[in-house]
Every structure is written in C-alpha cells, then in structure tokens.
Amino acid sequence: MALDFFIYISYNSYSYCLYPSPKKEATGVNRVKTEALKVDFLDLQAFIEAADRNFQQAAVSLDVYQSTVSNRVQNLEKRLGVELFNRENRRQVTLTPAGQAFREEAQRLCRQWEEAVEQAHRAARGEDRPVYIGYTGTALWSILLEITTICRTCTPPLKVISRDLSVRAQLRALRAHQLDVGFAITPEIRAGLQYKTLFACPMLLALHEDHPLAAEREVRLSELKQEHWIWFSRDANPHYHDYNLRQCQNVGLYPTIDHFTDQPYAMVSMVSHGLGASLVTAWTAVLKLPHVKYKRTIPAWNVELQMVWRKDEYSTAAQNFMQLVCETVEQRQNGLDGLNID
C-alpha cells in the first residue's frame, strides 16, 4: 500500500527529512522501510565524505569533530537497518557490500538535491524564466539570428521565445507585459518604453533587372516619378512608413503606390515579378530573389534598428539578454557585415 509523506525541516540543524504521514502506521518490513525514509541529509553527507576519504578527513572537510561524523554514520545505519562500514580493523575502516551499493545512490541523491536547490535559487532570480522577444524580418537578418544562437551556448543558457510581429504589435505587447524585449526599425516613441539604437542601416532601392535604371550603381529618386511602387504598410509601422515617404517627397517624388505589405519578403517577391519598385533596408539584400537588383539611392538616408523594452523591466533573464545584445553589437563595426549590395 502506498504511503503518504510529509517533509520535516529542522531549521536549527539545516536538515531535511522525508517522513511518512503519522496517520498511517507501518509494521514489519514496512516499518524498516519507513525508518529508512527518515534520513537526515547531514547524515547522508557525513557517510559520503567518510566513504570517499576516511572518518578523520571527513571531519576536516565538514568542519566538525570526528565523533560527530561517527555518530551521524551510525544514525544512518540505524535508520537503514544495515551496516555500511566494516569496523573490525579500526585503523582501516572499509565499506561493506551494502555500503558500496548505497554510496553510489547516495551520491546521486545528494547531487539531485544540490541541483534542486540551485534550480530553486535560479528560478527565484528569474534566470530560468524565458525571455520573450518580438522582431521584424529585417531585425532577424541584421543580428537577431546570431544573438539567439549565442543564447543557446552561453553559460547559463538563456531560453529565448521569439515572435515575428509588426512594430506596432510589438509596442502593444511590450506595454501589456506580453513581451520583454522588442526589435524594431525606426519605431514611434511610446510612453513607458525605453529605446536603444543598435545599428543605422541605409535604405536601398529594389528594382527588377529589366528596369532601365537597373544597370546604374546609384539611382536618383527624382527619376522614378512615373514608377509604380510597392510600399511598407502604414498600419504595421506608421513612423517608418511616413519617414520614408517624406524622404521621397523632399525631392519631388510622390509615389504611386499599388501594393502595401508589412513583409520584406513579399515586397521583394513583387519586385521579382515586375510589379513595381520598392524601398527596403539594406538587410533585406540577404534575399537573393531572381531578377532583383538592389541599388543605392540619391539622396541616401538611414533608418535605425532599435531595441525596445519597458522602463520597469526587472526580469534578470531579460536584463542578461539585453546585456548580451549590447556586447554583441559592440563587437561589430556595423550591422551590414556580409551583405553584398549591387
């Protein structure tokens, strides 16, 4: 019959014991098993130290008297109902077969206990809590893939749960405590949030390879007044949409926009099929779709990749993650490493 148990904790001796519930009495063999469950972890530790070394060295290691080690081992033997040491030769005490069998399992039990204590402390510090992040596609290609890989191999590992969200959706999720950290391109400023610029990134013109200006190294936007455009959706990131539109209007270009999307891949795919031109970040140049050429623009301008978080973000895991992001950014001269722009 299964036994019910309760935990007895002695704060004076810092001992932890597993006791059977007093509402059920054990008899015969069950009584022996019941007594074996009343094990003090300090008794267990004394046994392991004595088994691995000897009683004298165990006393030094535990910073107690040798008699204390002997008493604890004898108490453990009484609980178990078996002798763990041969004491015929006082000068050389050895393990009995029962002691040899018990030592391996006792060591495993102590390791599990230490791991359980460490996990409890890590959880209390927030280190075992996942970091919930939001990102846009361009942020993913710029640095986020590298950082997520580092998180899996650092010590202790950082568990990251990521979501592909528009910038506007990220800001809402951050303020609702559904995200810890966001990565956004030129986001609008919202109260209660903090922002850190990670990289500045130039905007590029994506053209079909058959376009008359596709052979040019740089293209003046003023030459594209008759062009049909694929534009970033304002609903996803109003500030980014308006900022790029103003850059065009400043040189007299008022784009005729046929298609809106908040997905960089969709924008470049439409260019690949000859549906128009598009302005994209330089990070989007990692998309090597057929028939697409990426060109620098005149005038040229940059947008910023920013890391966003709540001002009241106190999660240890989130703080460690953001520190890792900053350290990774500092090691790179810019966010365009490895990009091959036409």
Score class of each variant (00 low, 15 high):
residue 166 S to D: 14
residue 337 D to E: 11
residue 214 A to P: 02
residue 111 R to K: 13
residue 331 Q to S: 15
residue 294 Y to C: 03
residue 285 A to G: 05
residue 328 T to I: 04
residue 326 C to R: 13
residue 91 R to P: 03
residue 81 G to F: 08
residue 322 M to P: 06
residue 223 E to P: 05
residue 157 P to H: 12
residue 238 P to C: 05
residue 195 Y to W: 13
residue 317 A to L: 09
residue 94 T to Y: 07
residue 111 R to E: 14
residue 42 L to D: 05
residue 118 E to R: 15
residue 249 Q to S: 14
residue 152 R to Q: 15
residue 243 Y to I: 04
residue 290 P to Y: 11
residue 258 D to E: 06
residue 215 A to V: 12
residue 90 R to I: 12
residue 286 V to M: 15
residue 123 A to R: 09
residue 22 P to E: 08
residue 65 Y to Q: 10
residue 109 L to I: 06
residue 3 L to W: 10
residue 94 T to I: 09
residue 4 D to S: 04
residue 80 L to V: 00
residue 200 A to G: 12
residue 342 D to Y: 07
residue 333 Q to E: 12
residue 215 A to F: 11
residue 211 H to E: 11
residue 154 C to M: 14
residue 61 S to H: 08
residue 168 R to P: 09
residue 225 K to F: 10
residue 187 P to K: 04
residue 222 S to A: 14
residue 148 T to D: 13
residue 111 R to P: 10
residue 260 F to M: 04
residue 35 E to M: 07
residue 98 A to K: 10
residue 2 A to F: 02
residue 323 Q to P: 08
residue 41 F to M: 06
residue 184 A to V: 12
residue 308 V to M: 09
residue 91 R to K: 14
residue 19 Y to V: 00
residue 279 L to T: 03
residue 85 F to Y: 10
residue 8 Y to R: 14
residue 35 E to G: 06
residue 219 V to L: 01
residue 75 N to M: 13
residue 329 V to S: 05
residue 258 D to V: 01
residue 244 N to M: 13
residue 39 V to F: 00
residue 49 E to M: 07
residue 141 W to V: 09
residue 251 V to P: 02
residue 72 R to H: 02
residue 341 I to S: 13
residue 222 S to I: 12
residue 26 A to N: 06
residue 2 A to Y: 01
residue 249 Q to G: 13
residue 81 G to H: 09
residue 323 Q to G: 15
residue 224 L to K: 07
residue 258 D to T: 00
residue 274 G to M: 01
residue 247 Q to D: 00
residue 33 K to L: 10
residue 268 V to A: 01
residue 87 R to V: 15
residue 227 E to H: 05
residue 278 S to I: 00
residue 168 R to G: 11
